[in-house]
Design a protein around this nucleic acid. Sequence first.
DNA 1: TGGCTTTTTGGCTATATTGCCAAATAGGGG
DNA 2: CCCCTATTTGGCAATATAGCCAAAAAGCCA
Lengths: 110, 110
Amino acid sequence: MYQTQKAHLAARARIIKAMGHPSRLFIIEELGRGERCVFDLTAMIGADVSTVSKHLTVLKQAGIVLDDKRGNQVFYRLRVPCILNFFGCVESVMEAQRKEHLALAERVAR
Amino acid sequence: MYQTQKAHLAARARIIKAMGHPSRLFIIEELGRGERCVFDLTAMIGADVSTVSKHLTVLKQAGIVLDDKRGNQVFYRLRVPCILNFFGCVESVMEAQRKEHLALAERVAR
DNA sequence: TGGCTTTTTGGCTATATTGCCAAATAGGGG
DNA sequence: CCCCTATTTGGCAATATAGCCAAAAAGCCA
């Protein structure tokens, strides 16, 4: 039941896991607006360049982004733009949580 | 640029991270077919019950599943079924990778 | 109550991830 | 060639995650 799908699920998990970090989510969103070089992303995130570079490597190895070296800069872009739709659902989970907390708060208040 | 969104991105990341594990992906898909108790999920996955229980806790804390105790069993179900659509995009990343590997293989063959 | 089933919790080890610094690599332009 | 900028790599410490076992908790039923 699980064993037969395990390899496939592991492949999926690798991709999803690569998105499960605030900085990497930021990068994905930013690349949704167009390609960016490491230097610019680093400035926006405010972490060490090496850290951002490693985040980009994670996204690249997961197949989420592509890199393109031009001169002494490396530009990254999304490989599959639909990644962005992805977030609608995540938001609805967060929305459901907000509603529940509100409902709970009201119940406590009564 | 990033700092202002950081909390929101971290909240998103928590949810996505919770999905980034093969067993948890399996659970999500299985719950897409209907509610399941811990015991049944454990049988399907083939890990220790305590391990599966912990995976379910992760999903629950992320707001992805809800639990419902009936008798001495606990039934889990998806809180937001759209989670399943989610995977279409992940598949397209995998599809893009497959195509690229094929193209690469052809290039090498020539 | 005692025994059985189901689930969660605590504790432990092994492994993975994150982030920084320092150093290496690579490209461009005097 | 040397210097400057951009990026990656190596290494390290701190923290987080995953999985198992053993034990606790909770419900049912006789």
